[in-house]
Nucleic acid binder design. Structure first.
Lengths: 228, 228
DNA sequence: TTCATAGTTCGATGCTAATCAAAGCATCAC
DNA sequence: GTGATGCTTTGATTAGCATCGAACTATGAA
């Protein structure tokens, strides 16, 4: 018995409310300082510092020193993916943090998941890319097709730069709200960045919400048409 | 802030060593009794009972009453998937439970993940199915192609029966040891059952290990050839 | 019926870990 | 330098919870 890796430490780290708040805040993909995270978690700086040390030690967070600030980010996309999976279980079981408000609806419509687009809009994009034959399952998992590369060129994504790093181009990430896959990986990140750069969408400050402009929404829908 | 579902309860449930042992044991996909799980977790029946109640309450387990026994199983494939993700993080960070022994190697070669085949062998099968065009990404995620259906017919899988339930036919599950996808979903389950039925492989009692017979291994490799 | 086995509930115990205030470092501004 | 800000360390306090033995309930066997 007792087969397989021991995940108790990781689970314990995620199981404390203050630490869960910290992790949730970092799901926005932004680097936040220790003080910001303390406020986010609703604890004093001392307590937060202790939590952050543990999270870093446990491999969930990375710490970057910059002047007298310490910035924290999630350690990897895999960590983000696991957190989304946990949120999925929680949502499934009715552990929503708040009553469904307008904010919650916006979250479900479009939000940041670590560094890529999630929510209904993210799922819509994923399905459109698949249906259009722009991404397809290859021997190494999901990958960009030639047709897909063409589309990205047309949109103006710097594919050559993306190709340089060895990280996977496409990854699936299970969306906690829509309960379907959306696109993660380098491409997912690049697309979200692109939408922000060209002004189709912008993040609502201090939240994970992404808000599309009317024009941006129209352009997005034209590019990634809804599937039945 | 505090956006998204609150996963602290779920994480806390997974974060206790006794409960983690219980969950790990149930990753074998078998239904185990309260006493068996108590032994597995290394605690008394009283303690285990308390843990099992909490796990059921938290939606991670299902309880089935049968005579004077209570059988427990994981509540869903999604729960299994989340646990695998946590194991992936843990393995990545060196929290292996034991030093790499022969048992560990067997686990990495072929094991049960909830109800389907995982480990190198599971990954091999997944890649072969994808390369051979037997499964492909469709609008609703991974799906069996016509060519794939043909293969399954040839193997003798009861596709009609499978098609009846509304659960997804194919799902990807990230393998904690190989760090690649293997096949879950109804098809994944049916294939593993098939291998056992036709005697290609058998479970090692009281473990998650699956051991292939020499003949079974040969047949498996012929059907699902290793990819580069 | 009587005994044995499976599981749950209860109460007591003890340990772990979250928390904060205060003091200590480190960095920046002046 | 002096003061201010950001963060960490230390030590004391406290609350929660895992644990077990023992009593209790339910099912099955003889």
């Amino acid at each position: 018995m007792k087969e397989g890796p021991d995940f108790t430490q990781i689970a314990t780290l995620m199981g404390d409310p203050a630490r869960a708040n910290i992790l949730t805040a970092l799901m926005s993909g932004r680097a936040l300082t220790a003080s910001e995270l303390a406020a986010e978690a609703g604890v004093t700086a001392a307590t937060a510092s202790s939590h952050l040390a543990k999270l870093e030690q446990g491999g969930l967070l990375l710490r970057r020193k910059q002047g007298r600030h310490r910035y924290f980010v999630l350690a990897s996309e895999e960590v983000a993916h696991t957190i989304e999976a946990m949120m999925g279980l929680a949502a499934n079981h009715g552990h929503l943090r708040t009553r469904q408000g307008p904010k919650d609806i916006e979250l479900r419509t479009a939000r940041v998941c670590y560094n890529h687009l999630a929510g209904d809009t993210g799922v819509q994009m994923f399905r459109a890319l698949v249906s259009g034959g722009h991404i397809a399952t290859g021997a190494n998992g999901l990958d960009l097709t030639a047709k897909g590369a063409e589309l990205m060129q047309r949109l103006g994504l710097p594919l050559e730069t993306l190709a340089k790093s060895r990280a996977p181009m496409c990854r699936e990430c299970l969306d906690w709200s829509a309960r379907r896959s959306h696109l993660a990986g380098k491409l997912g990140r690049a697309l979200l960045t692109h939408f922000e750069t060209v002004g189709w969408a912008a993040r609502v400050p201090d939240t994970r919400i992404i808000r599309f402009t009317p024009k941006g929404r129209a352009a997005f829908d034209a590019t990634f048409a809804k599937q039945d």
